[in-house]
Design a protein around this nucleic acid. Sequence first.
DNA 1: TCTGGGGTCCTAGGACCC
DNA 2: TCTGGGGTCCTAGGACCC
Length: 420
Amino acid sequence: MQAVALIDCNNFYVSCERLFRPKLNGKPVVVLSNNDGCVVSRSQEAKDIGIGMGVPLFTIEDQVKKHDIQVCSSNYTLYGDMSSRVHDSIAEFSNEIENYSIDEAFAILEVNRYSKPLFDSGLEIRKAVKAWTGIPTSVGIGPTKTLAKIGSKLAKKSSDGVFDLTNERVREEVLAKTSLVDIWGINVRTAAKLFKLGIQNALQLRDLDVRSARSALTVVGSRLVEELRGNPSIALEMMAPLKKTICCSRSFGGEVKTLTEMTESIINYVSTAAEKMRRPQLVANAIQVFIETNRFKEKGQYSNSATIKITPTDSTRELIGYATSILRHIYRPGYAYRKSGVILLGLQPSESETRRLFHEDTYLKDRKLMNAIDALNMKHGRQTVRFGMPLKREKAWTMNRNHLSPSYTTNIGEILRIRS
DNA sequence: TCTGGGGTCCTAGGACCC
DNA sequence: TCTGGGGTCCTAGGACCC
């Protein structure tokens, strides 16, 4: 028999900051997003004061002063590094690990009648991660990933830091007390839908017949019900699948009103995105540029995006050229812009990487084979159409971003002129 | 005045083909 | 008033996650 454990770092970013600044221990601490805009991590003390997740800093300034809350800018290099150490530590305890996010990992725990109880395994992992990395964790254990997730939430509140949901009776008790939004994959919108059907807690959802779940929430719903019943329906992904998109975007510190400044930002993002793409030897199929004004303001809104097809052989310099052309095309003067970004789409392994994958003597091959074959089949001839759009339809660009700006298309001639 | 960034999956429906 | 049928591919948009 097998069980799944979810090892979840407590207040991860704050815990990382505390490792290197022990003075923060025992005090309320928050870590902020880019531009020091929003709270993205809170210490227990900060949570107890009532600081919400994701709140803008300027809305809690009174509390910061009153409670002497320690405010940190984020340092993602540090968190990434600590994350690998945590994942490496967990790998000492299981051969089947999924590094699910920067602060979480699933691990398969083997159960047999001679081995120690799962609960003790949880304690052991927790203790080791703390000793080896300094990061406190919570461990949830259950027959499925969804149940392990629920367990980890309870573990955070328990004194042991471990909660085992493999026992069916315990599970039933817990599920009856678990609200819908505390289930992995259910947010307020979905919860509201279920509420209308008379479903108010995890136990009722578990006992909903699969067909109703499917008709209300599509396949996601039926998977959820199965998971809650203890039937694994969400596989453990030991190999991180290849990325399908790479995005680089930022909100500006203030308002940006000139094409020159916008162009500078776009050039930066393309360089960063291209670097992220080339390191794992990927190539992209298309590039998208988007721009937005301040979405929190009521008036003077504009946002837009456009995508063009690119080829694997395009250099970063060429990509910058395309991206700035796209920008010129979607940019409208007279607006105060707050955000811009670049997305590389349709990522595939490069040809050399594909060859390497073919020769690689591991199960890696199976997972990547489909992508690899696609990559080999990729055309190298340059086309200026958006993907999926045949040339004859003369619909190379599509402007869509949102309701604020109408969709329209331009013809190939215009694109060529812009690109040249 | 100040409001993050980077992803994935699913479905409906349009466009196209024979 | 009638106006095929079956299939694929693609995208936008919704929903969710950390």
